[in-house]
Every structure is written in C-alpha cells, then in structure tokens.
Amino acid sequence: MLIDWFTVTAQIVNFLVLVWLLRRFLYRPILDAIDAREQRVAAAMTEAEANKKEAQRERDVFHQRNEEFIRQRAALLREAIQEVKIERENLYTAARKEAEDFRTRQQEAMIDDCNTLKDEILRRTREEVFAIARKALADLAGVNLEQSMVDTFLGRCRSLDAEERSELQAVLQSPVGPVCIRSTFPLADSQRQAIEREVAENFNYAGQFCYECAPDLISGIAVSMDGHQVAWNITEYLLALEQGITDLLLGQPSADGREAAIPATGYGTVMTAPPSFRGAGRDG
C-alpha cells in the first residue's frame, strides 16, 4: 500500500505547522520589512519632492534677488559715477580758482614789489639827479639850481602860445581864491616877487598869492588856480623813467623803446626835455 494514512495525517499536520512557521518567521517579517522600506522610500520621495519644490522656490527667490541686486548695483554705480563727475568738477573748479587766486596774489605781490622797487629807484634817482644837477650847475656854470628852476618857470610862462594863454587868463579872471604857488624848496622874496610880477603881467591877475612848500612836487614849481595848474618840475622825467623801469621789470618793452607813454598835451606844462626824455603832462 503506497498510502499510509497516518503518514498522510502527520504530513498534513507537518505542512500546516510549516505554513505557520514560515508565515511567522519568513513571510510576515520579510513583507513587513519590504512595506516599511517602501514607506520609507515613499516618504523620502515625498520629502525629496518637497525639498525639490522648496529648492526651486528658493532658487527663484535667489534669482529674483540677484537680479534686483544687479539692478541696484548698476543704479548705485551710475549714481556714484555721476557723483564722482560732479565732485571732480567741483574739485577741478576749486583747484582752478585757488590757482587763479594764487596767481592773482602772486601778481599783486609782484606788482607791489615792483612798485616798491620803483619808488625806491625814483627816490634814489631823484636824489642823485638833484645832487648831480646841483653839483654840475654849481661847478661848471656857477648857477644855483633853485634859481634856475624859477628862471626856467618864468621863461616857460612867457613862452606859452596864445590859446593856452587866453584860456588861463579866462580862468584867472574869476578866481575863487588866491593863486597858490607850490614849490619843492622855500622861495626867496625876490623869487616870489618875480613870479607874482610875471603872473600878473602875462595873465592879467591882480589878486592875492599864497606860497606852499610841497615835497611831493619833486623839484619844481607849480601855480594852482581854480583847479588849473601851471607847473614845471622833473616829475615828467621821473614818470618816463618810471615807465621804462616798469616795462623792464614786467618784461614788456614800450612801443618806441624807452619812451614813456606820457600825454604830450597840456597847456600848463612846460619843460624842455633832455635828448632822452620828453615830458609834458597835466597835474591836478
């Protein structure tokens, strides 16, 4: 007999026990592990998807901020460039103004120096000229310089042309005060009388005279009347010399060499200039 029913029963029991054992120790743990893994993978996938969306969102935000930053940077750069241009222009203007001021100050200082030097030269020249002239006249011709000045002044009064003479006469006809005679040196009484006589004769004047010693007149004599003046002195010489010195200092030669640009007209000025000087001017 191939079938043993006890063995059949025993094998049925054995198989059922085996089913229970494998279900207990094999299928359930394995399937549970697989389910847990699938859940973890699903959770990881969900999390990864969420992270991906979050990363995408953050990337968009980053791009947006980056573009905004670029725009702001460009705007700031443009603004900075504009400010730099303005500041550079201001600094350039300030520097130019400062340089201009400095140059002006330098020119003024140089002009002051020139004036100071010129005054000094004039003062020294005047003193030397007087000294030389006085000594030369005394030594060579036995002539007093002051007397020669008076004589020369009187001679020039007599040699005025008719137009000048008539004009001065018109002025002296209605004097508002005494005719003031100004000189560098004190005039002697004889010299005063000679001058009064000459003025009275040439200009028909019978009024009073006053005398005044004026150091600024620079070696000469001047007759002042109602704003008009007839004078002779060496001021014109000195002015020509001053102009020459000024041109020399400034490096600007005069138009005709050393000739000074002194006005050549004036009815009250009389002076015979030396060969190198020609002076005529109107004072007052």
């Binding site: 094998q11 054995n14 026990v17 085996l18 054992l21 494998l22 120790f25 094999l26 743990p29 394995i30 549970d32 592990a33 847990a36 893994r37 973890r40 993978v41």
Partner: peptide, 23 residues
C-alpha cells in the same frame, strides 16, 4: 519532512532575526 521544516524555519528565523528596513 521535519528536517526540511527545521532547515526552512531556522534558516528563515536566522535571516529575518535582524531585518533591515533601510536601503
């Protein structure tokens, strides 16, 4: 049969004693 049952059950038990739920 018991031998096969023992092999299957013990083998399954040994393998599934420390199952990993990770990757």
């Amino acid at each position: 049969t018991w031998l096969l049952m023992a092999i299957l059950a013990i083998g399954a038990r040994l393998i599934t004693f420390r199952l990993s739920t990770g990757l």
